[in-house]
Design a protein around this nucleic acid. Sequence first.
RNA 1: GGGCGCUUAGCUCAGCGGAAGAGCACUCGGUUUACACCCGAGCGGUCACUGGUUCGAAUCCAGUAGCGCCCACCA
Length: 876
Amino acid sequence: GVTTTDPAPTTTLPAQYSPGEVEAGLYEGWESRGYFTADAASDREPFSIVIPPPNVTGGLHLGHAFEHTLMDALVRRARMQGKETLWVPGMDHASIAVHALVEKELAEEGTDRRALGREAFIERVWQWKAAYGGQILDQMRRLGDSVDWTRERFTLDEGFSRAVQTMFKRLYDEGLIYRAERLVNWSPVLRSVLSDAEVDHREVEGELVSIRYGAADGSGPSLIVATTRVETMLGDTAVAVHPDDERYAALIGTDVELPLTGRRIPVIADGHVDPQFGTGAVKVTPAHDPNDFAIGQRHGLPMPTIMDDEGRITATGTDFDGMDRFEARVAVRERLREQGRIVAEQRPYLHSVGHSERSKEPIEPRLSLQWFVAVDTLARAAGTAVRDGRVAISPPELAARYFAWVDHLHDWCISRQLWWGHRIPVWYSPDGTEQICLGPGEEPPAGWRQDEDVLDTWFSAGLWPFSTLGWPDDTADLRRFYPTTVLVTGYDILFFWVVRMMMFSVHAEVNEPGSVPFGTVALHGMLRDKQGRKMSKSRGNGVDPLDWMDAYGTDATRFTFARCGNPGADAPVSEELVQSSRSFCTKLWNATRFALLNGATTDGEVPSIPTGADAWITGRLQQVVADVDRLYADFEFAKIADLLYHFAWDEVCDWYLELAKVTLTGDDEGAADATRRVLGEVLDVLLRLLHPLMPFLTERLWIELTGRESVVVAAWPQADFTRVAAGAEREIAGVRDVVTEVRRFRSDQGLKPSQRVPARVDGPLGDYQQRAVRHLLRLTEPGPDFTVTAALTTAAGVRIELDLSRAIDVAAERARLTKDRAAATKELEQAAAKLGNEAFLAKAPEKVVLGIRARREAAESELARVGAALSALPVG
RNA sequence: GGGCGCUUAGCUCAGCGGAAGAGCACUCGGUUUACACCCGAGCGGUCACUGGUUCGAAUCCAGUAGCGCCCACCA
């Protein structure tokens, strides 16, 4: 009701927070301000980060947006710390995503990509590329990205090819890449080999069929073998038994009849066979089972391949030829049954079967000529780089998983029979007797033809940390930003990608001997839905981050991701969480608006000796800055978000802003000015701390608050503990205790929060505390007709007498006090029990004993206080 | 078969040796001159189970039971 004489301070902040407008208005022009260009001649500390691949299924999915947010936060903070930052993006993985899209499109059209041919396929990929690259740019930008997402940085295919070829030739020349016929994981759907890492083992219900080999009718020797893949018997070339197995001693070295084929196969002795398992006799199919392959090699057995690249039976000379493997499994079994050779069947038989990770069907072990990387020395060096601390893994617990991989890596099959990717740079002479590996720019002799196979995705991805910076050339980027500062990625990709990057990078020794790809590998977990399930499109619980960005704003979406950033741990994410983040954004908006409407400023000196709430919040601010820094060191994004959320909401908004009103609306102009300055300071620092997690909103608010150019390049806050005033915290705690206690009383008494109540306040409260308490509780000065109808005393001994203009609700008050008494009684019992324990007194640290003593005393006085209040209540 | 991890309020999770916490949900009250995407007050838990170590255990150790993830060539 007071008319202000001074003109009210104004702000251009609209009353309503609208994320769309904030984001649209702000991004424009960022690039032109030159914040994002790296300067190779700068003497600032470099900070670089490698961007993991976009999801192969196309677009920007939730997990990628999540990861992107964490990385962007690190980069933004580094830049505010004055470091020179660089993201290391590249086109290669975007290409892969496009390839996948084209494949999908062809499948939908019903076009056979084999019929289309490689050249036409690549042509189509290129048609897509511009559009798709643009899509990625748009999505990245909407995330509030701090990268120079120019098309140049996305057009690195040439460079990648050069890097890939250079690395291949180097390993080839060193004898670390070789071609060999091995038993590999074969995908009949993809018609390609897969690496061990691309195979998922899943429990399936199959069958275990026991078959009699040899004489079917007891007219001669026979033995029984069991298998889950009956059809492979067509490719058997032996039966193996353990050398010491007496049951079969007489048969070793003899031949038995292999049913259905008319062939005879030897019975051999091999130590690999477990005599305790099954019958102790094993059928041996060297070309279609890894164990059998090993046995076959040891015994020099023939290794006939009986399946083609699509999983059809072939070249057995039986009428099963041409059948699909699963069809043949039934047909062969039934034929054997007709011949009386099935002696036992277990169905369902639960066993583990490898499946293609991408195409989902069971993989078929198959003998095949492929290219391999001998990983032994590479993997050992990659392990050493972590063991000796050159590369840190965060959280440290996950280093065990890393070691589990590098220490037990099999040779890596790098050739693929896919239609896209970098081709193996090896050429064969026309007669096929000679081969040559060529480096970039080298021409093969006329008439020589290049190997048809392409390289595994992870071969080129493994070069990422340095190929993106221009390797094999000695570039300025490479010298300045390699090794990269940190790699942020999910733990699920540790063995796929991280291990490959480590092996190649350590081996390449970019810049100098012993160099590594990154200083730290920061691993985050997977985003899951509320039920803890993995997000996936097929399950229908997947979320497009763009939908959230549209509905709640990019800042709310990003803050939500930050809240999920637990090192190495999965986190559930849900629409409710984004909603709560959006509320937080709105809260910050309104708080800043309030501050500006009340003349908050960042101009002029901050009061050197603030008082009351100003002193308290200034001290708290220093602690928060220090805590945020500590948490960043461990990549504890979720805790950073949580800390800032609660500090901003529970302390700054709920208490400081309310307390600030005491001085802002008071008569003391000097105090009001001091508060305006502290208010400006608190929001300034808070917005800077929040900027990495919500760039748009903080930019808009910070510019409005400070009138300066951009929070993007504002200095990162520094904690200054000389600004923590002794006693300030206690002073405000005193206010909070009284206010909370009286609010509780008022609520129980059914008093509206807005109702003004005449009251007398007595007890150990300073002037400032008195005023604060009166203001927050809407207590008015007692008038001439003041009648005490209610009184309460707080634990600290503050007495408040109120005139409610009516009798109090005795029952409600008794209930309240009874509850207090129960709590105090329990507290007293616990404390007394401890203090009555001789052993506790003798052995517990003095600090703890003193703490318990203080608790006992507090409980005793609380009990006395509540008891007195209870007995003062009218009976009934 | 081998690792690793988890089990705390209805739900999702923090806490990881010295007074049981948060968000959401729920109940009650509220047009308090920033904010109903809000404010105030409240309800709600033998911290999976059983032993052990300790003056003291949600927290450390062992075992049990469920659940999850990763790895693995047992026919």
